[in-house]
Design a protein around this nucleic acid. Structure first.
Ligand SMILES: [Mn+2]
Ligand SMILES: [Mn+2]
Ligand SMILES: [Zn+2]
Ligand SMILES: [Zn+2]
Lengths: 151, 151
DNA sequence: TCCTTATTGAAAATGTTTTTCATTTTCATT
DNA sequence: AATGAAAATGAAAAACATTTTCAATAAGGA
């Protein structure tokens, strides 16, 4: 599954007239599999394992290319706003572990009523929304006992 | 109302053992009233009108102090993740105009059901959420006719 | 294999935020 | 009102993150 997804990304890259290169393959392979949002340096460190002469500049450039193709997207967290993760499929939002950073998409939110009400009350015409849940993933729950913030 | 709110901020500052200074007054006055999220340079430019010898470093430092006191908070937007706005009162979320940047808080979202479901499905224990609506404010609607992104 | 051109990595440039430090200002105490 | 300790300030330097420049390299069609 990972292999075919990697191939899909590379084919898309090719279709758009980009060349398939060693550095790009290394970055695609790792981004396809990543279950944490990664910042450019994270990507750099991981990519260098597969492609040792990788330059950090190429990481920036490749993330931009993948982002333009809609394959990865930027993720904002309180401490780091320049993280990247495979893009959402359709209408999905992120759930991120505040301890280890593990990220998962979810879908099925319904803000229609809320948006309609706020639209009325504020006079804004609402174009989009941004929703992100923070929590502790299963493997981090034993490690941390923290207070829960409701609603 | 603005005057008393400014005073409240300054008193809080004083209570916490900080000194009330010219630069801080200028920044507090402008942040109390701001209806747009402002980045440090925005704050700098505006504060210099009232306090011409203001240094940019002081802006950074003062925003941090106000943020530590819970009086302002950092706002993330697609193009600029280091913007500051007066802090939410209780459980509020932001509505921001994608054209002019006008910001308004709203409350009354209820994600309880959603959170419970996602919690079940994912195994995460959910601690908090981050919700932001983007749209066009009343005065920007005539200017731009844009496609609407649903739900 | 050859050739054109996109891509690459190093280095330099740029832009932002933080640190350092001598000077100024605040404000509690005379 | 004058004094003095400590906090705050602004200029300059340093540290960081990101982008640009450019000569060398590599991709992939002919
Ligand atoms: Mn949604
Ligand atoms: Mn952000
Ligand atoms: Zn975790
Ligand atoms: Zn507007």
């Amino acid at each position: 599954m990972t292999v075919t997804e990697t191939e899909r990304w590379l084919e898309l890259l090719e279709q758009k007239g980009s060349r398939i290169t060693g550095p790009r393959k290394a970055i695609v392979e790792l981004m396809v599999d990543a279950d944490h949002a990664l910042n450019p340096v994270d990507v750099f460190d991981r990519a260098r394992v597969k492609y040792p002469k990788m330059g950090l500049v190429t990481v920036y450039r490749t993330l931009e290319v993948l982002s333009d193709l809609g394959l990865v997207e930027r993720v904002h967290q309180a401490d780091d706003c320049h993280m990247y993760l495979r893009a959402a499929q359709g209408h999905e939002h992120l759930l991120i572990c505040s301890c280890c950073g593990k990220a998962a998409y979810f879908s099925g939110d319904d803000l229609g009523m809320l948006i309609q009400r706020i639209s009325m009350e504020s006079g804004f015409s609402i174009q989009g929304h941004w929703l992100q849940l923070q929590g502790l993933c299963q493997s981090c729950q034993p490690k941390k006992i923290q207070t829960q913030q409701g609603e």
